[in-house]
């Protein structure tokens, strides 16, 4: 998520894809083929109240200092905890809550969970059904990082796939991106998707990718809105998504480079509610 967005929406789909998108908005017209992989291989339905399932998720705790990246590399303001005030499963949903409170020297708390070391894989369809928070300075994400081979490979060479990133001050827009060597930080390969007559904080939406050899397709609900392939990379850049094993991350950051910091009008607490995370092959 080292991602200073430039708001450029690169149109990388061939023309026929546009036609499909247009058709999909017609009620009885042809339906777009959004996904092809349907064998469920891993999921968390968040059906057991309490802390997240420790067989599936591990925590990142703190403000990044212990990891050598204070502010998690993006000048983020939150301190991640595993307390129920910040992360809990209840009523069949995972709740990640950002609070405004003084805690361990930080002014906000939140949570971040990862499948690192517990579930890592290559290729598949990864999706989550999420109701997002709202307000300036809130930065929830559903994303993936490549394995670092015990620290011997560093970001961005490990690869990063951002399935959903969102700015609380833009409640109708989500962003899907990849970061790798030569296309990271401020210059990822990215595209935004804007809902019409709806927003991401008033109901649940499905955020997903279908990832295979030399492609990553991005979709929201039943709309395929982008495909990223090696052809989209800067000249000479390496496609780092055909070899590495990737793990899944859910978190909510507060403030940071990707967006502005919260202000007095930002309402706290804010909660990102996740109905499920599923992986299909």
């Amino acid at each position: 998520m080292n991602f200073i967005n430039k708001n450029k929406s690169k149109l990388r789909l061939p023309l026929f894809a546009f036609a499909i998108v247009l058709f999909s908005s017609c009620e009885n017209g042809e339906t777009q083929t959004v996904t092809t992989k349907s064998e469920l291989v891993w999921s968390d339905e968040f059906d057991t109240d309490g802390a997240p399932d420790s067989n599936k998720w591990t925590f990142d705790i703190g403000d990044g200092t212990a990891q050598g990246i204070p502010g998690w590399g993006n000048n983020e303001l939150q301190y991640y905890t595993d307390r129920p005030e910040n992360i809990v499963v209840q009523d069949g949903m995972l709740h990640i809550t950002a609070n405004k409170e003084t805690f361990m020297g930080a002014t906000y708390t939140s949570a971040k969970i990862l499948t690192k070391g517990l579930y890592e894989t290559k290729y598949g369809r990864f999706e989550a059904r999420i109701k997002l928070p709202w307000g300036k300075g809130l930065w929830p994400a559903f994303w993936m990082l490549g394995d670092d081979a015990d620290g011997t490979v560093t970001w961005p060479n490990i690869g990063e796939i951002d399935i959903m990133e969102y700015r609380g001050q833009q409640p109708t827009i989500t962003h899907g991106s990849v970061h790798g060597p030569g296309y990271s930080g401020a210059t990822p390969i990215t595209k935004s998707y804007e809902l019409t007559n709806d927003r991401f904080d008033t109901g649940f939406h499905i955020f997903g990718i279908e990832w295979g050899e030399n492609y990553i397709n991005y979709y929201v609900d039943d709309v395929l809105y982008n495909q990223i392939t090696p052809a989209d990379l800067p000249e000479g850049a390496n496609w780092v998504f055909n070899s590495n094993q990737f793990y899944i991350i859910l978190n909510m950051a507060v403030g940071g480079n990707f967006l502005e910091n919260p202000d007095l009008n930002t309402v706290f607490p804010q909660t990102m509610i996740v109905d499920y995370v599923r992986v299909y092959k």
């Binding site: 709202w134 409640p171 809902l195 019409t196 007559n197 709806d198 927003r199 904080d201 008033t202 309402v267």
Partner: peptide, 10 residues
């Protein structure tokens, strides 16, 4: 209009 984007009543 029905905009569908008006939310978070306070």
């Amino acid at each position: 209009e029905k905009l569908g984007t008006i939310a978070q009543p306070r």
